[in-house]
Every structure is written in C-alpha cells, then in structure tokens.
Simulated assay, not measured.
Amino acid sequence: MTSTRQDGDSWDLASSVGTTATGAAAARAVATRQDRSLFADPFAAPLVRAVGIEALTRLATGEVAPDGVIDQAWIDIAKIRGKFYDDFFLDATGAGITQAVILASGLDSRAYRLPWPTGTVVYELDQPQVIAFKTRALADLGAEPTADRRVAGVDLRDDWPAALRTAGFDPARPTAWSAEGLLGYLPPEAQDRLLDTITELSAPGSRVATESKPNPRPGDEDRTKERLNRISESWRAQGFDADMARVRYYGERNEAAPYLTDLGWVLDATSIRDLLAAHGLSSLGDDDMRMGDVLYVSGDLPMRSRA
C-alpha cells in the first residue's frame, strides 16, 4: 500500500513515489511501441520488467493493450514530454554545454540512449537505491552509457549539491539541468530551494528545463484527487495496488516559470495542450486535472542574478 508523503520518507521503484517513475517508464514503453518517429526509449520496457510490478510489466511489454488500462492521452503526453527533454539536452550540448544534470532521474535512460557529443558528462541524482537498481539493471542488459555518466545517490531534500560536487560537478562550467516530472512531488518550500540551488550552481550560459503547473483554482485539487483515485482503482483491478493521490503534495506554491524568471532565467514556455495539437495527438477531453495548462519551460541564464 502506498503511504501518504511525509518529511524524510524514502522509496524504491516499486513503492510510494517511486512507482510513479516506473509508471512513467511504462508509458514511455507504450509510446515507443506506438510510434518511434516522435520519441523512442528502447530501455523503458526492459527496465519496467526489471522492477517487477506485474501490471506495469504487462503494459510496458505489450502483453496487454493500453485500452482500458491507461488513457491514450497519457501515452501521448509521454511522447511529447520525452521529445521535449530529449530536444532540450541535444540542443544544449549541441550549443557547446558539456555538463548535464538529471534531477530525480528514476528510470531515465538518456545517459544510455542519446547521441551525446564526445566529452559530455551526465550526472544523475536520485535515491541511492533507485540509482543502484537502474545501474545494475542496465548493466545486466549489456547497455553502456553514451556519455561520461556519473551518479549521486542522494535525496533531493538533503545536501544534494555536496553529493553532486563529490561526483565531479563543476559549478564554474555551464550546465544543462532537467527537473522532469519532479516539482509536484516536492513540498512547496523544497521546490523553491531546489530552483534556488540550481540557479546558485549555474554558470552564465547554463540552461534549465522543467514543468510549470498553474496554481489550483477552487475545487481543482478535489477534482484532481477524484481523478487520481479513479485511475488508482483501475490499476488495482489489474493487480497493482496504486494510490496516486497520496504521493503528491497539494496546496498553493510558487509557479515554477515566474519563479525562475525572477531568479534571472530567460524562458520559453509551451503548454501540453499546444504541444499535443502541434503533433496531431489526442486532446485531453474534459481535462479535469488541468493537464493541458501545464507548461513545459526551458531557457538559459545569461548572467548571475545574485551577488
């Protein structure tokens, strides 16, 4: 059973918030199987199988069709989200940035599948057991990194900059940072600290990519919880004891896009709704969770915003 989030909690890829990383990888696996022209992650399905959640494995490997298990809109969001972050890193390294940091890397396989320029160092940060599991699972698959991959097993609520520096990170060099699917799983104050710290560790010319969700309107969070509870019930019918409403933090918080802008970042933003339409993918229907209003944002830091 998934427990309610609390300060100091931990997880692996088959428990608590860790199952969201495994579920995201399952969605990437289905997205890859449907159409490799937009986005492809060949490691998603075998990594989900290695985690061992049977219902997600059946979905990821194609043993069951996604119909009736997961809405097509979620698969389509996995396609545009995967492409957005792939393009972000390829554009950044193509422009000469040689240092990338993937925060809360989960089952992200970009260090193994993207064509990184020679000399690129990719840092992955996540819970120690998550990092250890993925490293071992990909080694068992015979996969080799396509960049200089370095890992830091650390909780992002702890002193992760120290762990990052220990792994070799150089704050004097421009960095490409991703915080993909992360911010809603941090308390509001921890989100602010994370974005502050990214900025403090970023040399001029660094880039960042993340999502910026609008603050809830009256009734939004109740509708979100109801929707997540319905999704969880569907998964339980498949034998997966999910409780998706309980792994998020709720309440108002600083929206990421204006917060980063105030820190000195110059950002571009595109909504999920617009990205789906641009690629001819499914609409979000009534969108009771306001997913279409979520912005994918990316940009650079042209100068230090603080003394």
Rank of each mutant, 00 (worst) to 15 (best):
V17I: 13
S16N: 15
L276W: 02
G96Q: 03
G205E: 02
F169Q: 02
D170W: 09
S271L: 10
S10R: 14
A307W: 15
P128G: 02
T61P: 00
A21N: 01
F88D: 03
P187C: 03
R230N: 13
D222A: 13
R248A: 14
D274Q: 12
A65P: 05
R150G: 11
S212K: 12
G181F: 01
V247P: 01
L195M: 13
R227C: 12
E211A: 11
S206V: 09
D159K: 07
V294E: 06
R304Y: 15
T57I: 00
S16D: 15
L90D: 04
A163P: 03
R5E: 12
D91Q: 14
D288A: 14
R223F: 01
M244G: 06
D262R: 15
G8K: 02
K83T: 07
A95I: 05
A163F: 04
G119I: 11
R193I: 12
G264Q: 04
V122A: 11
Y185R: 02
L107T: 03
L183C: 03
G219M: 06
T210H: 05
L284W: 01
D71W: 07
G251E: 08
I102T: 03
G94S: 05
G142N: 10
L103H: 10
L114R: 03
Y123T: 02
G168C: 05
A50R: 06
N229G: 15
R157L: 00
T261I: 10
I75C: 05
D196W: 02
L281K: 00
P218L: 09
R113G: 07
S37P: 11
Q191G: 13
G280C: 12
T175K: 03
I70L: 14
D220S: 09
R246G: 09
T224W: 13
R28F: 04
E54N: 10
